[in-house]
Each structure stands twice: as C-alpha cells, then as structure tokens.
C-alpha cells in the first residue's frame, strides 16, 4: 500500500561501518545520484574538474559518511567504493 520509502533519511547519524570513502574521479559522469540520495547528506560536488569535464563528488567533512554503502551501489559508473578501516582501528 505505502509508497516506497527505501531512502527515508536516517535521523540518527550513527556510524553503520567504519569505512574509508573513495571516489575514482575520472569514472564519474556527474549524474549526482550519490549526492542526492545519501541518507545523511554527506556528499557535495568538488571544485575539481575530471577528464570528462564534470565535478566529481567529495565528502563534506572527514567524518560525514556513516558507511551505509548506498552511494557505492547507486553509482551507475562504479566510481565510488568503500574500504573497511581494518587493522588501523586501534590508532584512530
């Protein structure tokens, strides 16, 4: 019955996973899906122009990403990937 609410904003900014957020800048075609649908609004356009002439996304701040992984799967161009911060954990 209810309309799909799969992308309901997460109210609590609780970290789901401790990850490093990466973008392969030259793969980005600038569709802005990642920026628009991030549940905690962690991303914005960067100032950099890539090889395709678009501004790839960047994190608004170092700890903005909660590691939900949505942007990674939603990126049509495989430009985003998350890496688990394994091993580095203790020092950080």
């Amino acid at each position: 019955m209810s309309a799909s609410r799969l992308l309901t904003p997460v109210v609590k900014r609780k970290k789901l996973a401790d990850v490093e957020w990466n973008v392969i800048e030259d793969f980005c075609k600038g569709c802005s899906f990642c920026i628009e649908f991030c549940p905690v609004d962690a991303l914005e356009e960067s100032d950099r122009l890539n090889a395709k002439g678009v501004h790839p996304p960047k994190l608004k701040s170092e700890d903005a990403c909660i590691g939900c992984g949505l942007c990674e799967t939603l990126c049509p161009d495989f430009a985003i990937y998350l890496e688990k911060k394994e091993g580095k954990g203790d020092k950080e």
């Binding site: 793969f27 075609k29 600038g30 569709c31 799967t73 990126c75 049509p76 161009d77 495989f78």
Partner: peptide, 16 residues
Amino acid sequence: FPHIWCEGCGDGIILH
C-alpha cells in the same frame, strides 16, 4: 572501464 553508457543511464546500476 569506464563503460560506454551515458551519464545517469540505469544500465550501470543494473550491472552493479
């Protein structure tokens, strides 16, 4: 890669 599909084409998401 990068693949040939246009900006925002859904085919990239399906493959993903």
